[in-house]
């Protein structure tokens, strides 16, 4: 079922609640409002209750990332007779908009500078800006389509209030060996632990992934560190050691999955995904060093 959308089509923003904040709904450009583009379908919008009808099994994932609502319509290019489906996903926080953007970005995509960050795939362009993740999907492919997608994305970006810029926490990750466009934000259940929320993860060479979890205080970070230690000590085929000769101390988890974890102030950081513990230890130390500066 499509939710009636009287307000979202013509620049008459309604307000939707998300937790304690209210975010203005995005008004999809009306027919004739954008030069060269005609709106070919009536706007639709979906909220958490019926998102399943729009994106099926992905709905729960989006909701976990703070999904509030999505507004969508199809636009037709006057000159090239190509059509583009515009989807504007409204998330609760900029981190969550980035998070869902990054979750949908693939290694084959080309990074672009639209909004805060953008990707361009074969027939799809996505970008995030403020609390919004915008996706434009074309029926066709090719250089002309790419140009159309880019021009439409820039137009939409200009209509979204709030300047987009890279998330500050991601600046804490070292540059050396960092793999471009590999950053992720994971809002909850990081490492499969319900208490690890607001996690950032970046891929590096040698199969290392560095992560950073922001907590509310150093006490909270310390508590999480201890809970992680208890969790891994309770697992089969896992050896947990604490290396206290360095600052900060490192928890080394050796087993089927390798893990290096440290706590520094209100941060919990470390390395995962590697096959070589030394590589993880070195990378985690570099992260701790950069945070400590």
């Amino acid at each position: 079922m499509v939710v009636a959308c009287a307000a979202c089509g013509d620049g008459n923003p309604s307000r939707v609640e998300h937790g304690s904040t209210a975010i203005p709904a995005f008004g999809l450009p009306a027919d004739g409002e954008m030069s060269g583009w005609a709106r070919a379908t009536n706007p639709e919008h979906y909220e958490a209750d019926n998102l399943w009808e729009y994106i099926n099994g992905q709905a729960d994932f989006f909701i976990d990332y703070g999904f509030v609502r999505v507004d969508t319509a199809e636009y037709q290019n006057d000159q090239e007779s190509s059509s583009v489906v515009l989807e504007v996903y409204q998330m609760g926080r900029p981190q969550e908009a980035f998070g869902i953007f990054a979750a949908e970005r693939t290694r084959d995509d080309r990074p672009l500078e639209i909004g805060a960050q953008a990707y361009l795939g074969t027939n799809v362009l996505g970008f995030w800006q403020a609390e919004r993740y915008v996706k434009l999907t074309s029926f066709d492919e090719g250089p002309e389509v790419e140009r159309s997608l880019i021009s439409l994305a820039e137009e939409i970006s200009s209509r979204i209030p709030g300047q987009g810029r890279e998330l500050e926490t991601l600046l804490l990750f070292p540059e050396d060996g960092r793999i471009e466009a590999s950053e992720r934000f994971i809002p909850k259940n990081f490492l499969g632990q319900p208490y690890l929320t607001n996690a950032y993860r970046v891929d590096y060479t040698h199969d290392v992934q560095l992560f950073l979890v922001e907590t509310g205080s150093s006490e909270e970070a310390e508590s999480h560190f201890k809970r992680l230690e208890d969790f891994y000590r309770g697992r089969d085929q896992v050896i947990v050691t604490l290396e206290t000769t360095q600052n900060p101390a490192m928890m080394i988890v050796d087993g089927p999955s390798m893990l290096v974890v440290f706590q520094l102030d209100h941060h919990l950081g470390g390395a995962i995904g590697m096959q070589d513990l030394d590589a993880g230890r070195t990378a985690a130390a570099a992260l701790a060093d950069k945070i400590g500066r």
Partner: peptide, 8 residues
């Protein structure tokens, strides 16, 4: 659905 944690 979730690709966040291959360990799962």
């Amino acid at each position: 659905m979730n690709s966040d944690n291959p360990d799962l």
